[in-house]
Computed example of a mutant assay.
Amino acid sequence: MTAEWVSSPVPAEPAEAELMRRVAAGEEAAFRLLAERHTPALLRFTDRMLRNRAEAEEVAQEVLFRLWRQAARFDPDRARLGTWLHAIAWRLCLDRLRRRGADLPLDAAAEAADAAPSPLEASSRRADLAALETHLAALPHRQRAALTLFYHQEMEGPEAAAALRLDLRAFWSLLRRGRAALRARMQGG
């Protein structure tokens, strides 16, 4: 006798375009779901750009506030929701960086290691990460944003280009210049 497994279909997550339509209609539950999906990536991006956790959180909150207020303006045929939100975050970060005039100093704490390395390995890794962050912070804002979106946020080139409001060719050029500048800084040149 064979046992047959009866499985009930798992309800699919609502598509982001549908959620945005519901947010535009004022549905708070749809907004909360989108906020839960996108806040971690927005915080990573804004924190890396602004290098100040409190400011990064403020910008991420402003992005979510704009998502709520401007949901009806979102066009899923023009961009993915994550791209649209990162474009808003980029402009808000750029405004703050311009007002600031210069970047804030890098916080000395490095990211925690995934595995439990030896104390010597952990110290070396923290020093390497701190050096990388210091060199990344010294790059022009646009180069830092391109590198962060492409490598840290793992956005595809077209999506990162859209977030920065660049055509794809200009984005690849900016990314190439950013990599070269970072490489030169790290090699001491």
Rank of each mutant, 00 (worst) to 15 (best):
L67P: 05
S124K: 08
H141D: 10
E55P: 00
E156N: 02
S118G: 13
E28D: 07
T83F: 11
E111F: 00
A145F: 05
L139M: 14
T46I: 03
A131E: 11
G26S: 14
Q143P: 05
T46G: 09
V59T: 15
A115K: 05
H141E: 11
A87P: 04
P119H: 00
F74M: 03
G101L: 05
V59G: 04
L43S: 00
T46N: 01
D103R: 15
L34I: 06
A56G: 13
A127T: 12
W84K: 00
V59H: 11
L92C: 09
F74L: 03
E58P: 00
T39D: 05
R48C: 13
R51H: 10
F150L: 12
A112D: 14
L106H: 07
L85S: 05
E27C: 05
L42G: 00
A112M: 04
A102V: 13
R125C: 08
L64T: 03
A87V: 04
A79T: 13
A29N: 00
D75G: 12
P40I: 13
L136D: 08
Y151T: 04
L67H: 04
L33S: 10
S118R: 07
P117R: 09
E154K: 12
H152I: 08
A87Q: 15
P76V: 11
R44K: 11
R69L: 07
A102H: 12
R99V: 06
E27Y: 06
R78W: 06
M49S: 13
E28N: 01
D47K: 08
L94V: 03
A108F: 08
L33H: 15
L104K: 07
L149R: 03
S118H: 10
L85Y: 03
N52M: 08
S118W: 04
F74D: 01
H141G: 10
D103T: 09
Q143M: 14
D128G: 01
T46R: 02
L120E: 15
L147I: 09
A113L: 07
G157A: 15
R53M: 10
L120I: 10
L147G: 06
E62D: 15
L81W: 02
Y151D: 09
D128M: 10
L34T: 00
E156H: 09
R44F: 00
E111W: 02
A162P: 02
T134N: 06
P158C: 09
R142V: 09
A161L: 03
D107I: 05
E58H: 02
P158G: 14
A60W: 06
A146D: 02
A131F: 01
G82Q: 07
W68C: 11
R69F: 04
P140L: 07
G26W: 12
F45R: 08
A56S: 11
R44D: 06
A41D: 11
L120Q: 14
R32Y: 02
A162C: 10
R98W: 03
A113P: 08
L34F: 04
R51S: 14
A145E: 06
L132N: 03
L43P: 00
H152P: 00
E36K: 11
L81D: 02
R37V: 01
A137S: 13
A131G: 12
F65Q: 04
A116Q: 04
E121K: 08
A162W: 04
E159P: 03
R126G: 15
A109I: 11
R32K: 09
